[in-house]
């Protein structure tokens, strides 16, 4: 009997973790700077959905859910392949170039800030040691 109770807890825990994973992935899909990032996020969502189906299949005892999981895996695979073809044929858009430039600028700014901070520290250090 106690094993069943442990399984119940495990199912609840797994559902909660999967929910969290789902939302974290959706954050990447919404924010994802480029199209391939979003496609990758959708691919990940399919994996998480298959996990959901497996957990629900255990919880309810319906074995029909296995077929749903297999079909979902197939559809997800085909969708990713089709999206990859689409990325290849579409090429880069101006949007991508814009966001890439923005990211590069942000990285450069971060680098410059780190460098100036290091320089400051160096200067302080040298003045202190000079005194």
């Amino acid at each position: 009997m106690s094993a069943d109770i442990i399984l119940d807890y495990a199912v609840t825990l797994a559902l909660a973790t999967l929910c969290l994973a789902f939302f974290v992935t959706i954050y990447r899909i919404i924010k994802g700077p480029t199209l391939p990032d979003r496609i990758l996020g959708l691919d990940m969502l399919v994996a998480i959905a298959i996990g959901f189906i497996a957990v629900i299949g255990i919880k309810t005892g319906f074995t029909l859910y296995v077929d749903v999981a297999i079909a979902l895996g197939l559809v997800g695979f085909l969708a990713t392949v089709a999206f990859a073809r689409f990325v290849l044929s579409r090429g880069k858009t101006e949007d991508d170039l814009l966001s890439e430039a923005r990211e590069a600028a942000a990285a450069a700014r971060r680098e410059a800030k780190a460098a100036s901070r290091a320089e400051n520290r160096e200067r302080q250090h040298s003045t202190r040691s000079g005194q």
Partner: peptide
């Protein structure tokens, strides 16, 4: 039953790690 419970929890943790990595 215990093995399948353990596999469920470990699998969902890996899914969470994957999505955190995605971010």
């Amino acid at each position: 039953t215990l093995i399948s419970a353990a596999l469920l929890v470990i699998g969902s943790l890996f899914a969470l790690v994957a999505s955190v990595g995605l971010v």
